[in-house]
């Protein structure tokens, strides 16, 4: 059991090392800087520029957070501060089910619900033509996917705020909303940031749902109505043919490594913050 436990801890590093080992041949011919900055993606002639894919990932993630964070903050505050317990009893299972829905189902929903809305109603107001398969669509689908994690962690964090603090503010004549705004949210800020970072990393790595609605154009998007091509989609779409072209598999493994490192750091930082919050209030 000791061995299993130690093995599981070192497993985190094993993933990193394993991916690096597979990606290493790429570094012989390219510098890290050129990999990040170049936007030329032509595997057959050995050109691997990750810029469009990194930008695609960033756009989609950013849109998802901009959509999801305000909604989830409001929901979290409502559920912990205002809602009757009956509302809570209904909402929490709903959020749990939402968390259990597989990515591919989100993707199907995105194609039949979000894509037509973007194509018919949203995009025509701003641009001339859009297929509906855009970074905006991907962002909206992702936003719904990160609702559960955001709502549940924000609620957990808000629950740790001591009642005395709220009572003190209320007894000074502040309204409930003022108490929330100036006391509760201020106190919960580190936790909310940690929750957001976790949600960002979840959005970062999401593959299939985004791949299905994002358009997969290997060009850095310039508006929300452009198609994008996030890193995970790149890996998933090209795995079949990667063994036939030299260095292609290394490039895809490098994409996986990149995702792993970013998400590892994000998760580590936010989990440490969240653990500290929990520890502070439980003892």
């Amino acid at each position: 059991m000791l061995i299993l436990s130690i093995a599981s801890v070192s497993f985190v590093f094993l993933i990193g090392i394993g991916l690096y080992w597979r990606a290493a041949p790429l570094f012989n011919e390219n510098t890290l800087y050129s990999l990040f900055r170049s936007s030329e993606w032509a595997p057959s002639s050995g050109k691997f520029g990750f810029y469009p894919f990194i930008m695609g990932t960033l756009w989609v993630t950013l849109i998802a957070i901009v959509v999801a964070l305000p909604l989830c903050l409001l929901t979290g505050v409502y559920l912990t501060e205002y809602a009757k317990s009956s509302v809570r009893r209904v909402m929490l299972p709903l959020v749990n089910i939402l968390a259990g829905i597989p990515p591919v189902i989100y993707g199907v929903w995105g194609i039949f619900f979000v894509v037509p809305i973007v194509r018919e109603y949203v995009a025509p107001r701003f641009t001339e033509y859009s297929s509906g398969y855009t970074v905006l669509t991907g962002g909206v689908v992702l936003a719904v996917m990160i609702f559960p994690i955001l709502v549940s962690i924000v609620s957990e964090v808000l629950k740790t705020i001591p009642k005395e603090l709220k009572d003190a503010s209320l007894s000074l004549g502040a309204t409930k909303w003022e108490t929330i705004k100036k006391v509760v949210l201020k106190r919960a800020l580190p936790g909310i940031i940690a929750a957001t970072v976790l949600a960002v990393s979840r959005a970062f790595g999401e593959t299939i749902a985004v791949l299905m609605v994002c358009g997969n154009v290997p060009v850095a998007p310039t508006s929300v109505f452009d198609g994008g091509y996030p890193l995970p989609a790149l890996i998933a779409n090209n795995f079949g043919e990667m063994m036939s072209i030299p260095l292609y598999d290394s490039a895809l493994m490098f994409a996986a490594l990149l995702l792993f490192v970013i998400i590892f750091l994000f998760n580590l930082v936010s989990r440490i913050i969240l653990n500290r919050i929990e520890h502070k209030y439980s003892s």
């Binding site: 801890v9 497993f11 985190v12 993933i15 597979r22 999401e206 593959t207 895809l252 996986a256």
Partner: peptide, 22 residues
């Protein structure tokens, strides 16, 4: 170990797929 599992929990499935493939 608990921290490691929290972090592993957040690693996307595509990375696990790529790792298992290697």
């Amino acid at each position: 170990a608990k921290l490691a599992f929290d972090v592993l929990f957040g690693i996307p499935s595509i990375v696990y797929g790529a790792f298992a493939f290697s």
